[in-house]
Design a protein around this nucleic acid. Structure first.
Lengths: 412, 412
DNA sequence: CACTTATGTTGCCGTAGACAACAAAGCCCT
DNA sequence: AGGGCTTTGTTGTCTACGGCAACATAAGTG
C-alpha cells in the first residue's frame, strides 16, 4: 500500500517516494501555478523561472492547453530582439464558486483561475442564518450562477470561508460563535445541494492566503495577518510559504492571545485577550452608532484623529496600544516579513501609526522587529471570495491532469 | 539561470521545476532519512513505507551503500513467513560534530548519522566566554576528537546550538544576551579553525527539532516547545512538519510573548512576558541557592510540593500559572498536537500538573486544547548535541549523492 | 537586406522507476 | 523430512519524460 507507515519509529514527516508521474504532475503544477498567480506569463518567462528546458515547457503548456486549463496567444510583444515569445494565460472558463456566510448576509462569488472575481451575489438575512439556511442560500445562488455561466465552463468546485473554526479532517464547522453554529457539516450540505466538491476553511486564514497570493503580502513567505469583522478578531499566518493550519485546522486564532491581566472577556470567553480589548462594538458605542460599514467606521475614526475628541480618542488609543502589543508578540513568535491588518484594524492602525509602531518596537525583540513591515489589507471586499476560491483551485493545481471538473450546464 | 524569478508578479512560492535527477536525489533522501530517524529498517519496510518498487529500493540502497552512507546485514529475522528481508542501517562511520557554547562551559559532541551521541566533551569556563574564546575551545575539542575518530570516518560538518538569535542568511549570532555576544560570526570562526562546514541555529529551536525527530515529539507535525536554561526561556515550534524559522531566522521567541500587565522585565527588557514571570533565578532565591543543576532544582521543587512550604510554594504557583497562560496562547496560535516543556519548566509543570492543565484549558479555545498533549522533554543532556548535529546532517540528507564529506585523518 | 538574437519545434538520447518472471529463503503442515 | 506457501531479492525489459542539439522562425539592427 502506497505510503503506509510500517515502523512506528518511522513517523516524523512523510516518507513517500516519487516517480516519473509525480515529476510530470509537479511540473504541470508549477506552470499552472505561475499562471494562476500572475494571470499571463510568456513561455520564455516560464522557461527561465522554472529552470526547465524550452522543449519541456512547450510540452507542458501543450498538455495544459489540451486539458483546457490554459490558452496561448501571440503577445503583442515588443521587448527586445529575437522571436517574440508566446503568451500563456490561465483559461478564463475555469472557475470556482466562493461562499461566505456571515451574520447579516451570505455571499456567493464566481472566481476564475486567473484570480478575477467575475460575479458576486449577496443575499441579506435579517437574523444570523442557521447552517441549513446559509447552505440553502448558498446552494440556490450557486445553482443560479451556474446556469448563467457560459456552456461548458469548467467548475473546479466550491470554497467556503467560514467565520469560525473548521475541522481539517472532515470539513465540519466545529464552532462559529457569532453565527451560533456548533458542529455543522456546512460543506456537506452545500455539496448535497449542488453536487459539487466543497472545501471549507476559516475566513481569516483564507484572507491571509489571499493577501499573500494576490494582495499586499505577495512575494512574502512569512506573513502574519490580523482581521477584524463583526464577530471579533481572527488571524492567519504564512510560515515558510505555507498556510499555518495546526493539527486539527484551528491554528491562527491570533485574536485569542492573551496580552493583559484585564478581566474583560472576548467573544469566546477568554479574558485579557487581544479580541477582548480591541472591540468593534466598543467603537460603535463611543460613536453612538448602531451599525456601520468599515468605511463609515474609518471615517469616524479619522474625524476623531483630526478633532481630538477625548472620549473616542481615549478608546482608540487603548485599542492602538492593545493591537500593537498583540502584534509585538506575533513578531516575536513568527519573525514575519510583513504584518497585514484588515477590517477596521486598518483604521485603528492609521489612527496613530507612529505610536503604534513605537509600542510594537518597544515590546518586541529588535532582531525581529527591525525589518518588519506593517501594511493595511489591499484586496477589499473581494478578499474572501478570492481566498475561498483558492481551496478548490489548490486541489486542481496539485495534480492538474488528474483533476475532474464538473461542467456548467449548457444554456437552454 | 535556474530558478530565476523573472516577473515580479511570479513571486509567491518557488516555481523551480523538477527533473529526473531531482527524483533520484529525493528518493535517496527518503531512504536515508528513514534510516536516520529509525536507525535500522528492513528493505521491505523501506518498500512499503515509500511506496516505491522493490527493485527501486534495491537500487537506492545499493547506491547509498556505495556512497558509504548505509550498511546492510542479514537481520536475525523471524517475523512471519517468507524470505527474511535485509536490514539496512545508517552507517556508523558518518558523523557530525555538535557545539554548544554556554555561560559556564562549551560542549562538543560527536553524533552518528544513526542519531547516537558517541562522545561528549565539556570544557568549563569560569566566566562567560567571548565568541572568540568559545570558538577556540570548540575548535580545539573538535580537532582533538577528530584525531580520535577511526580513520576514514566521514564527517558531515559542524552544527552549533547557540543560546541566542542566529541570523539565517549568514549564520552570524546577532545577539546572545547572557553570553553578551553581539554580531559574532561564530560559525565562520569555527570554520576557520577546523576547515569544516559549520551551521548555526538557536538552541531552543534545535531542541525542538531534536525532540520532534528523536524524542517525545516523534511522529508529530505540529509541536510547540518551551525550554528554560540559565539564560531565560527559549522556544521553538514545528509547523506542518517544518521548523518554524521566520524571515530572518529569529522566530520562535516564545519566552518573550506578553501575557501580563506586570512591569517586571525579562532578560531582553520586555515587560510582562513569560520569561519575566517564570525565572529560574527567582526559584534559586526562594530556595536560597547560588546555583543548581536542573535535577537539584527539581528535587527542591518536589520537596516543596510535599511539604507545602508557603514562601516557595507561592512562587511556584505563580510560575505554574504564568507558564500555563503562556502555553494557552501558543495553543490558540499553533493548535499543536503536543507541547513539550524542557529544562526546569518540566519540574514546574509537574509541581501542579492538575492546576496547570486547568489554567491552560480555561485560557485557550476548546477546539484547540481538547486534544493537546503536554509532555516533559525526554532526551536529557544529549538533546542539544543531537539537535545541532541535525544541521549538517540536514544538508547531507537533502542530496545524499552529491554531498562532499571531509574525512577524518588517518590515525598515526 | 544580411546579420544577430531569442524563441518555438522536432527528433534523439539517457535514465530511473514500474513491472514481470524467476530465484532464494524462511515458515508451516502433513 | 519434504513439499507447499509466502515473502523478498535480483535481473532484464519497457516506458515516459526531461535534456539536448539542430533547425526553423520571427522579430530587431545597421
Amino acid at each position: 500500500m502506497k505510503g503506509e507507515i510500517v515502523d512506528s519509529k518511522v513517523q516524523a514527516g512523510s516518507f513517500v517516494g516519487r516517480n516519473r508521474e509525480d515529476v510530470r504532475q509537479f511540473n504541470l503544477s508549477i506552470v499552472l501555478r505561475m499562471l494562476h498567480f500572475a494571470g499571463t506569463v510568456s513561455r520564455s518567462q516560464l522557461t527561465s523561472a522554472s529552470g526547465l528546458n524550452r522543449s519541456t515547457i512547450s510540452g507542458l503548456v501543450n498538455e495544459l492547453e489540451d486539458l483546457g486549463l490554459v490558452t496561448e496567444s501571440m503577445g503583442e510583444s515588443s521587448s527586445g530582439a529575437g522571436r517574440p515569445s508566446l503568451m500563456v494565460s490561465a483559461a478564463e472558463d475555469v472557475v470556482a464558486f466562493s461562499v461566505n456566510p456571515d451574520v447579516d448576509a451570505t455571499t456567493v462569488g464566481v472566481v476564475t483561475l486567473g484570480g478575477h472575481v467575475i460575479t458576486k451575489r449577496r443575499f441579506q438575512t435579517r437574523l444570523q442564518p442557521t447552517a441549513q439556511e446559509a447552505a440553502q442560500i448558498a446552494g440556490r445562488l450557486i445553482n443560479e450562477l451556474r446556469d448563467e455561466l457560459a456552456p461548458n465552463t469548467k467548475i473546479a468546485g466550491v470554497g467556503a470561508a467560514v467565520p469560525g473554526q473548521v475541522r481539517l479532517a472532515d470539513g465540519v464547522v466545529r464552532l462559529a460563535p457569532h453565527l451560533n453554529w456548533v458542529e455543522q457539516p456546512f460543506g456537506a450540505m452545500i455539496g448535497q445541494l449542488t453536487g459539487l466538491p466543497v472545501f471549507l476553511d476559516n475566513d481569516a486564514s483564507l484572507g491571509c492566503m489571499a493577501e499573500r497570493n494576490f494582495g499586499v503580502g505577495r512575494g512574502f513567505d512569512d506573513v502574519v495577518y490580523l482581521f477584524s469583522g463583526s464577530g471579533g478578531i481572527g488571524g492567519g499566518a504564512i510560515v515558510n510559504g505555507q498556510q499555518l493550519r495546526g493539527a486539527s485546522g484551528y491554528a491562527g486564532e491570533l485574536g485569542h492571545v492573551r496580552i493583559s491581566d484585564s478581566t474583560s472577556s472576548d467573544y469566546s470567553g477568554l479574558p485579557g485577550t487581544l479580541e477582548s480589548l480591541v472591540r468593534r462594538d466598543d467603537l460603535l458605542e463611543v460613536f453612538k452608532l448602531d451599525s456601520a460599514t468599515d468605511e463609515e467606521l474609518e471615517n469616524e475614526i479619522l474625524a476623531v484623529r483630526d478633532a481630538r475628541s477625548s472620549q473616542a480618542g481615549k478608546m482608540l488609543s487603548l485599542q492602538v496600544e492593545a493591537l500593537a502589543l498583540g502584534l509585538a508578540s506575533f513578531v516575536n513568535i513568527f519573525n514575519p516579513e510583513v504584518v497585514i491588518v484588515a477590517g477596521f484594524l486598518g483604521a485603528v492602525f492609521d489612527y496613530e501609526q507612529h505610536r503604534f509602531l513605537e509600542v510594537l518596537k518597544a515590546n518586541s525583540l529588535a532582531a525581529s522587529n527591525e525589518r518588519v513591515i506593517v501594511r493595511r489589507s489591499g484586496l477589499g471586499s473581494d478578499l474572501l471570495m478570492i481566498g475561498a476560491a483558492e481551496l478548490p483551485f489548490r486541489s486542481l493545481l496539485a495534480r492538474p491532469s488528474e483533476f475532474e471538473f464538473v461542467r456548467a450546464k449548457a444554456r437552454r
